[in-house]
Simulated assay, not measured.
Amino acid sequence: MAERTDGRGVLYPTRLPSFHREPARDDLRAVVRWFWVPQWDLPPGRTSRQELLPFPASNLVVQQAGVTLSGPTTGASHRDLRGRGWAVGALLRPAGIARLQPDPRTIADDEVPFAAPELHDAVATAMRAAAMPSEGGMTGRDRALAAFAEWISGRLVPPDEDGLLANAMEEIISSDRSIVRVDQLAQRLGVSMRGVQRLARRRVDLAPLAIIRRYRLQEAAQRLREEPSLSIASVAAELGYADHAHLTADFRKVLGCAPRAYRESSRER
């Protein structure tokens, strides 16, 4: 499925540890976009820095130390991995985060503890057995994902109309590269520009233009990384940037480097 091959968000995929994405099952698709599972086992003294341009969304994450809820970020981020470890996360839809944190503004650019001991116990128990032979055709990772899905299904009630509208906003931005302005988004949703701005702030805690630009910048990084023969000007034009200079400015502001420098560094790593 597309979720398993979506390369957006990870700036240097070749540096990833073992990484798996699993689409949410049908009854959870309105609240969870997908689950993700990295696992790593690094030699003593070695650190692997994972550089990310996160999706404009929140994540509920189970790790060995506990459960955390992270909000949408306004820029790039990184995680330093050491030793042996794992994480099991759920990328939440706008309708899903509202059920766990009614005011996403309180966790923007932050990661906070989330009290869910039963979720942690179930996932951690399964992941500790992840290296063991499969049981009944299910690996430890499979059992961890199943436990996570069951926990969510028991706590996230079906989204309301406002949540579904926010999901539609996210889906349109994510899937349609021609959406580069807020007025285009408002027209597709059938609401006013002010209505879109309020919806995005209420459900994501990012301005709608910031959400649009995040997806387009993710796509630009992916194109630059995966299609070395494609000119930077062509990437800018395809993704709705006014010109090469605007894409470069976006790259420098968010990633701290120019598109050309990013393309070269992605080949080296």
Rank of each mutant, 00 (worst) to 15 (best):
A237M: 11
R194P: 06
E227P: 08
Q218W: 11
R216E: 03
L209W: 10
I212C: 01
I232C: 05
A220H: 01
S231H: 09
R223P: 07
R198T: 14
L224P: 06
P208D: 00
L199T: 07
P208M: 01
Q222P: 09
A210N: 10
Q197E: 15
V235F: 01
E227C: 09
I211V: 12
L209Q: 13
V204L: 08
Y215F: 15
R202H: 13
M193L: 11
R202S: 15
L199A: 03
A210L: 06
E227H: 15
R214C: 04
A236W: 06
E226P: 04
I211W: 01
S231L: 09
V235K: 06
R213I: 11
Y215G: 05
D205G: 13
R213V: 10
Q197L: 09
Q218P: 07
A236D: 08
R225Y: 07
A220D: 05
V235T: 04
M193K: 10
R198Y: 13
V196A: 04
A233P: 04
Q197P: 10
L209M: 12
R198C: 08
I212R: 00
I212N: 01
E226W: 02
L217H: 03
D205I: 05
V196G: 05
E226V: 05
L230E: 06
A220T: 01
E227R: 14
R198H: 11
Y215A: 06
S229F: 14
L199W: 07
L230S: 03
L206R: 07
P228I: 12
A200G: 02
L217N: 02
A221K: 02
L224G: 07
A221S: 11
I232M: 07
L209I: 15
A210F: 02
E219L: 12
A221H: 05
Q218T: 11
R198E: 15
D205P: 10
P208F: 00
L230P: 00
A236H: 03
R213P: 02
V196Q: 01
R213T: 13
R213K: 11
L217Y: 06
L224A: 11
L199D: 01
I212S: 00
I232A: 05
R202K: 15
G195H: 03
P228Y: 14
L199G: 00
S231Q: 09
R201I: 11
V196R: 00
R223I: 14
R194L: 07
R201G: 07
S234C: 10
M193Q: 13
R203L: 03
R216N: 05
Q218I: 08
L230Y: 04
R225G: 10
D205Y: 14
G195Y: 02
Q218E: 03
A207C: 06
A237V: 08
A207T: 09
S234K: 14
Q222H: 15
R216P: 03
V204M: 06
L224V: 10
A210I: 02
A200P: 01
E219G: 10
